[in-house]
């Protein structure tokens, strides 16, 4: 089987956006077939202290508390899962409608509806530990102290691979306030690193002038990785009713519509901070999307909104990555990451 490394070719293909024809015809029967991997590609990735068996994760808030997805996805195959954000105390979230579809996108204002960290620990963690994949807890505090306290309390829990700090939810004010201030993000990451032995990921918002400055602060403070990006602020209006459609008026845009924005941010941060591992998130729905982010500089990807319209999307992305890399002659995904070159160099 030819799986020699041909990095030059891989890079050229990626640069010109060429897509290798799939050697296996897509399953058109509509039946789920055994998706056995033919490929012999080393898919392991390392993000700071966090090691993953492959680069495919699921995005917080789009995969429930993971158990909802168990019938659709073989969880143990994924690189990891990120359950919905937990807060210190239970939160009811926003009134409905909480979501509305827009062209190639989804606007949401869920408002961090969750039962709080105690319930998470008692009810969700025991299940999450059985999933056979890396579990990354995503937390949001109302202020820095609350973030640190939550991270510290999760640090003692067995079965967690990392903690992701949601400093970027556009639907509650505090997260965004904190996440738009580079110094505040740096301080938070540093304190969480001191308080919690787990690898720390900062999930950043695109709703700022310069994501690079905030990512730099996170890197400086010792973040193991940054997740780029949370949703893009937006809104939808019903002109007949002369009202915004979301009960919250405004929300966060996700889905294919935001992929170019996420790609640009990943690219910028990867070039400015080449040693900071990046987890890309934003409109990733298939393997080509994921591979674009990987060559642009992401070490891993999260599948988000795509899971809503294809609950098997994360596994499809994983299979597609392995197949494409095999066909491209890439032996290890780690050698593929960040290999896209600028046209201006």
């Amino acid at each position: 089987m030819p799986w020699r490394r041909r990095p030059e070719k891989a890079m050229m293909g990626a640069r010109r956006g060429r897509r290798a024809p799939p050697s296996v015809p897509p399953d058109r029967s509509g039946w789920i077939v055994e998706r056995s991997l033919r490929a012999v590609v080393d898919l392991r990735v390392k993000l700071g202290r966090l090691s993953l068996k492959n680069p495919v994760l699921t995005a917080s808030g789009t995969f429930g508390y993971v158990r909802e997805m168990a019938g659709f996805v073989r969880l143990e195959r994924l690189g990891g899962v990120v359950p919905k954000t937990v807060t210190h105390r239970p939160r009811a979230g926003n009134p409905t409608p909480r979501t509305v579809e827009t062209r190639a996108g989804l606007l949401n204002a869920i408002g961090l509806d969750n039962d709080g960290i105690d319930h998470f620990r008692e009810h969700h963690l025991p299940y999450l530990r059985t999933t056979g994949t890396a579990v990354i807890a995503n937390i949001a505090g109302e202020d820095e102290d609350q973030f640190v306290a939550m991270a510290a309390s999760l640090g003692d829990e067995p079965g967690l691979a990392a903690v992701e700090l949601n400093v970027s939810c556009p639907n509650v004010s505090h997260g965004l306030d904190l996440g738009i201030d580079a110094a505040a993000v740096g301080r938070l990451v540093r304190r969480v690193r001191e308080a919690c032995p787990l690898p720390v990921i900062a999930k950043l918002t695109p709703n700022v002038t310069d994501v690079v400055a905030i990512a730099a602060a996170a890197a400086e403070a010792g973040a193991d990785a940054v997740s780029l990006i949370n949703t893009v602020r937006g809104m939808a209006v019903d002109w007949r009713r002369r009202r915004p459609i979301l009960a919250n008026d405004v929300g966060g845009l996700s889905g294919p519509a935001i992929k170019p924005i996420a790609l640009r941010i990943v690219w910028d941060v990867a070039r400015a901070l080449p040693t900071l591992p990046i987890i890309a998130v934003g409109g990733i729905a298939d393997a080509d999307d994921a591979l674009e982010f990987l060559v642009a500089g992401a070490s891993a990807v999260q599948v988000g909104t795509a899971s809503f319209y294809n609950p098997a999307a994360a596994e499809d992305v994983l299979d597609g990555i392995a197949r494409a890399l095999d066909e491209t002659g890439v032996a290890a995904v780690a050698d593929f990451i960040g290999t896209a070159r600028s046209n201006r160099e």
């Binding site: 429930g64 997805m69 659709f72 919905k84 409905t96 409608p97 909480r98 949401n108 509806d113 319209y309």
Partner: peptide
């Protein structure tokens, strides 16, 4: 018939 995005419990759109 609440408004739904996923239908399987992942998105929390359809709460009542």
């Amino acid at each position: 018939e609440n408004h739904m995005a996923c239908g399987f419990g992942a998105c929390f759109s359809c709460v009542t």
